[in-house]
Design a protein around this nucleic acid. Structure first.
Lengths: 151, 151
DNA sequence: CTTTTATCATTGCATCTACAACTATTGTAG
DNA sequence: CTACAATAGTTGTAGATGCAATGATAAAAG
């Protein structure tokens, strides 16, 4: 009946530890198509979200805008995407090239293998529960911008 | 009644997105004591695990040995810990200094504030459920070294 | 129209992350 | 004792991450 009301461990530590493990797992697979896990995620978003403004893409990825700017660079250098001008002179549009779409298609197959392998190691139930919880936490932290003190 | 047996999303993506959000949250607090979230985690481990060999510390942190080498450098430069010689000429021992222990004590108070704030935003139940799941995943991935194909 | 403010993207700086290759040392086999 | 293998830690290379500050443009205020 005892529900602890105090922190029982560091959420950040656990999240980062598992993050490192899982990232290594995926990178191990994705290396076959020359993609880092983050690059695959980014490329997928660009393919799916069509021409998109960097700031919007950064929001979707829960990533700092400056991080996005830099992460796009090696991928643009590889010719997988372009960062062209938008409507305004200060806005830009990120778009996947044909080459980028091809690489993404390859990556998707490889990703599936990696995901299935993870599902097997952890068990499908656990993975689904984890996804639900992660989605729910992301949604909660996303809507609340700053401050709290809410009742 | 439909239980999906196929991947429903990318575990790595979700984990990294939430990881970025949560890391930002903690760093926002920890900045007050001049520590990055990773440094606090590392320093805490060094304080708790006493003089410890780098390779053992890396294992505990689920971190690559080369990453640990580099992460220790700025902290050693700050005088929070020392990387001294071990028994062998090739082994070393990491140990927290008095200064490091003081900083860690400060950090611990700040960390608690950050953790409580997170608990409030997500709700205690959710955080506890997340911790259980993260711990369980870490344990699973930890014991299995490589390969799988297990029934 | 001009001043002020807000927005968008980038750059400087510092740190985190890891694989591959390397150095050095220890351990084992012969 | 010497040759070979295993281990411990570091360095080269490459990318990920974010805050603070900057440059440039657009929007709002006057």
């Amino acid at each position: 009946m005892k529900i602890p009301t105090n922190p029982q461990g560091c959420t950040n530590l656990k999240l980062r530890q598992l993050g490192r493990m899982v990232t290594r797992h995926y990178d191990h697979y994705m290396a076959a198509v020359g993609l880092k896990n983050t690059q695959y995620a980014l490329l997928s978003h660009v393919v799916k979200l069509g021409p998109i403004r960097p700031s919007d893409l950064a929001k979707r990825m829960q990533m700092d805008a400056s991080t996005l700017t830099r992460n796009l660079q090696p991928m643009a250098a590889q010719g997988w995407l372009t960062v062209g001008v938008g409507e305004n002179a200060r806005s830009r549009l990120v778009e996947a090239t044909a080459s980028g779409q091809a690489v993404r298609a390859q990556g998707q197959r490889t990703w599936k293998t990696a995901q299935l392998a993870l599902n097997e190691r952890l068990g499908m139930e656990r993975v689904l529960a984890l996804h639900d919880l992660l989605d729910s936490c992301i949604a909660f932290l996303d809507e609340e911008p700053r401050d709290a003190t809410a009742a």
